[in-house]
Computed example of a mutant assay.
Amino acid sequence: MQRVVESPGVSAPPPSPDGRRSRWTEHRRARREELVGAAVAAVRLVGPDFSVDDVARSAGVSKTVIYRYFSDKDELIDAVLERISQAILLPRLMGELAVDRADDREQLRAVIAAFVSLIEDEPALYRFAYAQTGRAGRADLVAATEHAVATALGGLIRARLIEAGRPPEGAMTWAYGVVGMVQLASHWWSVARTVPAADLIEQLTALADGGLGTLLPPRG
């Protein structure tokens, strides 16, 4: 019987430095995202004036761990604002703008309703985002959201005007006018609460549609 001679065991090569670095980078990114989620939960529970201690309790870690991933509270706040914008606010608003509705009034109403419902569903996150406006040298979620929504709305208005053979120069002026009106009125309402949310939506829709209705060509 032929004897089988086994080769000496050969160890697997150690992971390359680039591989280890890639895994560490991914681990750090995932851990940071978990802590941002804990910070969002802390805002919902405590309110806009949450502390790093509140985030640590929410995440079940010490403050020291938080500061391994964020240089200071301002950096953590920026990350929370980014999460609110990208995961909560813009998907609602831009999603409604992306729906092609045959009726202009219903299109406006859907976007306005999405914004008002956000204030109703996430009051703590809304107050937090608004409280951060005007921070020197830091991200301004309110301004960035207004710009994104106005740009999208302006594109729709511009397309309607061009299709009808009309000058499109007023598109962005009208878009910013509508977005600014809805934002400011809704912010006032979030504190005053003088009418039910459904009434606010109808009032703002009537005002926005009344203005754009005189400026845009009728749909064919």
Rank of each mutant, 00 (worst) to 15 (best):
G47W: 02
D121Q: 13
S22Q: 08
L153M: 12
R166T: 04
S85V: 06
A197Y: 09
P48C: 05
R29Q: 15
P91L: 15
V46I: 12
M181I: 02
L35C: 07
L204H: 02
A59W: 09
D121I: 00
R31S: 11
A131C: 11
F115C: 03
P14E: 15
V5P: 02
G213P: 05
L184P: 00
P168G: 11
G9V: 13
V178T: 06
E122I: 01
V65M: 08
S71G: 15
S16D: 10
E146A: 08
E33L: 09
I119T: 08
A159T: 13
G137I: 02
D78T: 13
D209L: 01
P217L: 12
Q86F: 03
A198S: 15
G211T: 10
A148F: 02
D140P: 04
H187I: 05
W188I: 13
L76P: 03
D53S: 10
V191M: 12
A41K: 11
A42D: 01
V4A: 13
V55K: 04
W24N: 13
S117T: 13
L156E: 12
A150V: 00
Q86P: 01
T145N: 14
A41M: 08
D18V: 07
E82H: 12
A38E: 10
A175L: 06
S62F: 06
M172E: 13
S58I: 02
Q86N: 08
Y67V: 12
L141R: 07
E33C: 09
W189Q: 05
R160A: 06
L215G: 03
A12D: 07
R160Y: 11
I162Q: 11
A39H: 06
T205M: 01
M1D: 10
W189P: 04
W188T: 12
G177V: 00
R193G: 13
R109V: 08
V4P: 02
A56Y: 03
M172D: 10
R57C: 07
A39W: 08
D121G: 08
A87L: 14
T194P: 02
D199K: 15
T205I: 09
E120Y: 04
E96Y: 06
A87V: 06
L216R: 04
T145I: 00
A114Y: 12
G177A: 14
M1A: 14
I84E: 03
T173K: 05
A39P: 05
R160M: 12
T214P: 01
R29N: 14
I112T: 05
E169R: 07
G213S: 08
R193P: 03
L81Q: 15
V179H: 02
A143I: 03
G220A: 05
S71W: 04
A39S: 10
A198R: 11
S7M: 12
R29I: 05
G137P: 02
A150W: 00
A143D: 10
M181W: 02
Y67R: 03
S51V: 12
S85E: 14
A79L: 08
E6P: 04
S58Q: 11
M181L: 14
A164V: 14
F70V: 14
D209A: 09
L207M: 15
A41E: 15
A98W: 03
